[in-house]
Amino acid sequence: MEFDCDRLADILLDLATGRLGSADRRAAETHLATCPSCAERVRRCHDVIAGLDAWEVPAPPEDLVERTLAAVEGAGVSPGERRRRAPSPMGIRPPTVARVRWGWRTGLRAAAAAAIVFACALQLSGDFVPRIQERIEDAQLELCAQQLSRLGVALHAYRRDHGEVPASLEDLMAALLKEGYVTDPGIFRCPAHADGGEDGMSYPPYTSYMDLLGMGRASGEASSGGGRATAPGHLGDCPVLGDRPGNHAGHMQVLYLSGVVETIELDALHVSMAAWTYPRTRGGG
């Protein structure tokens, strides 16, 4: 097969990587011997290949296989089974139901087992149940922080693209969903407070952020309680979105313009203050 420059341009990479068949390679080499331009192209292609060869990436972590197999195990999905529900966030598999033949001996054994379990539960409930509860609350705080981050990024992207943000909270939520900045309406609701309040939004924007966007305090429905904003000392310290007081028991999370999500421990005396004074330090100070 005869090669012209166009043909050689088509098979350049195959030639440079040695994937060309022998007949095509000989024909290409014959052409290269008489065409300095194509010879230069091949040389530069080799430079690119040298660059590709030098592109080193990190080796996979040693435990990647184990973690992957653990994730598969934890998902609890049998081969071929479609996922009808998302895996439990705590990685707990749902119980399987077994069919049992009931007779009096089975009933006696079941009653004895139940009595033992009940006695153990009474013994352990002193610290076991609170520990489980604590883990649930930690998981909710973690999920809440992730939602705040994602909402903050969506809000920022919306403002960047549109130059402004809708004045009402309802319009803001609708716009973010409609235009694909967020895809799941559940993101507006704190996992610890499922209904999100009357407006379905657990994370109202702070007045200080809305002021920053030039919206002023006229948009009272978009403010967190409508209180006076504390002017941030540094732009990154401006609170953007935050939990409604009471979303979490004893905690409140705030997303700042810097991107940091801060968890603030609150006691009962400070809960009502937090929504108004934008605490930036632990303890509501």
Binding site: S149, R150, G152, V153, A154, H156, A157, R160, G180, Y181, G236, V240, L257, S258, G259
Partner: peptide, 8 residues
Amino acid sequence: VRPDLGGA
């Protein structure tokens, strides 16, 4: 869709 907010 979700670039970093204020940097990383």
